[in-house]
Design a protein around this nucleic acid. Sequence first.
DNA 1: CGCACCACAATTTTT
DNA 2: TTGTGGTGCG
Length: 751
Amino acid sequence: MTELFETGDINARSAYIEKSFSRLNEMQKSAVTATEGPLLILAGAGTGKTTVLINRIAMLLLCGGAGMRVEPWQIIAITFTNKAAGELKTRLEALLGASAAGIWAHTFHSACVRILRRDADRLGYGKNFTIYDAEDSRSAVKKILKSTDTDETVFPPKSVLSEISRAKDSFLPAAEYLERAEQTGDIRKIRTGEIYKEYSELLKEANAMDFDDLIMNAVKLLAEHEDLREYYRNKFKYVLVDEYQDTNKLQYLLACELAGGHGNICVVGDDDQSIYKFRGAVVENILNFENEFKNARVIKLEQNYRSTGKILDAANAVIGNNTSRKGKTLWTKQDPGDKIVLYTAGDENEEARFIAAKIKDAAASGGNWRDNAVLYRMNAQSNRIEYAFKQSGIPYRIIGGTRFFDRAEIKDMLSYLSVLQTPSDDLRLLRIINTPARGIGRATIEAAAEIAEERGLSLFETVKNAGEYPELKRCAEKLSRFTEMIEKLAESAKILPLDELYDELIEKTGYIAALDEKGSEENKAKAENVRELKSSMIARKIGAGDDSLAGFLDEVALYTDTDNYDRDADCAVMMTIHSAKGLEFDTVFIAGAEEGVFPGLRAVGEKDEMEEERRLCYVAMTRAMRRLFITSAERRTLFGLTTANRLSRFVEEIPDEHIEKPLLLSAKKQIYEFSPKISDKAFVRRPARSEQKKEILVFDTGDRVIHKAFGKGTIVSMTPMGGDSLIEIEFDEAGKKRLMLRAAGENMIRE
DNA sequence: CGCACCACAATTTTT
DNA sequence: TTGTGGTGCG
């Protein structure tokens, strides 16, 4: 294909462009063909952003840029998620074949790792540095707090870490941060600065970098070393950044450094989908792009290929209430489609059952489970929905929560592997030195740590020569047995393929054996996970053709669970709105549309926060292709507290012609207050809409039920009472009980 | 040394 | 309400 460039035949080339880009709309075409200079592509949700990116790269490779041939290795495309980077790579390979392999398609973090692996020694790190994840960082801070007798309640590790993170984002190293803190005289800041300094030293000694360090050090490397800066600037003629609205200051700096030579920077993003301010994302990066880069072109993609008209109009209306935005209006050639449906339930349980019932209905008429997604603001909301799904037999998956690679047993194994590479990593060593138990107790470890501290040695070195220290004499044999094992394994690491090394590791450490010893269900699952890790290694060997320990650890360190979201599994999906960004579903449920939940309590009265919540709402709505349900509850119990929340303002912002509200809240309330004798059924739990599956949603006199605590029984009577119902149940075993339905319903199902 | 119990906190989390 | 992490006891 590259011959096309060689021939220089303009007609042939434009014929190719014509053919290959015929599926693109006009705006997409101009976004693809404007290869030179700074370009901002404002791509609304579902406007074919990835397609544009792919075609743009293909265009560069096939037709060159500015009359010059472009090589794959001259292009770098940076994304945020591994998934996005992987998708880019896969699609490019499909389009361009082997030549795609040379393109740098990376996440910010993995691109930085690649840069740092090459030259980290210039910053005083070993090239085989370890990557610390959030948990590692946390234990590092905790360790420092403990060793300096700092009260954790006064300096919570979490806030210390976010302060450190913010400092790094501002490109402020510990020494400078501390200096500035001292100037202000703010004792708290000074203390934080001291912790920051110790934290940096601890990581440096362990030859480790945290997530922020990866970016900061890459920027530092380029900023401080002209030869490297020139190397990358010359190398990368074309820099592309995806999800630009989510970049933080450091990432912006990195992009600038890389694109500083040729000035061909193309950023793609949507200011309306900026939802990571709390992680340091700076919307201004995208809002000010035209000021930062002179002669920047801006192309808006507004034609949406995902959703029906009403969904888009509703989303446009909601986001239109934000002021800090460039302004876009999504449109589609598709039909207007159905109205959005609002359902206000009595409480979160009924809300969950409504969602479950709707999904069952859809499945009954031939739909796939996987076409349904339930999105919520907080993970805490997922519980009731999960319960309802279980009750209705809906197969489901929850995205988020504990990641596979965050499980204790997996982190143990990874720590072993990491220590083989970097024995001086005290933090990781501490994790495994007595896991599984090998009789190295707390006292021994503390003594060793003290010696190490005094002599400026790593823990591993100290423990290795335990015989030399009287304090460790008693345990010396156990300790050296441990270090010998590690050293032997480290030798094996040099010669064995990764998966075989792993077998040996399991064998020598006796990890699985120790789990099997107390063969509880939990331990069986853990052992299974430990074995499962091996398949990740093999998969990597086959997939990426990489069999190196270092490569595996890198990938795993930068891995997240959303990467592993399997769209083929036929399950309904539940996740937070944040996790849903970039995904699409036929039917979407947005649960918890209440003031105080969504928008969250903290955003009420805060303009910027509220705008971010509104963007979140926009993201949620634009996930839906065909059907969108928004649900709320009149009363919601969250963290043990029951509150009555008003309907979310975002729902009120949707024009009436696009949303179906079954019954006005006030009207509903009147029914409750003035006609409590509508029936002796538990009207509290009855759905407002007649099409509900009553048998799931209400209990009635005479029903057979199973109660969590009292077992099987029959409902004898039900009396409406104060917005709830008093029910009497004759239990087979436990006798007659009087219960309030709202409470009992939680623990009770139909037999 | 391991387990059990209690206190405590709780938006969101691409890496 | 739920999960997690730290402490103290057996």
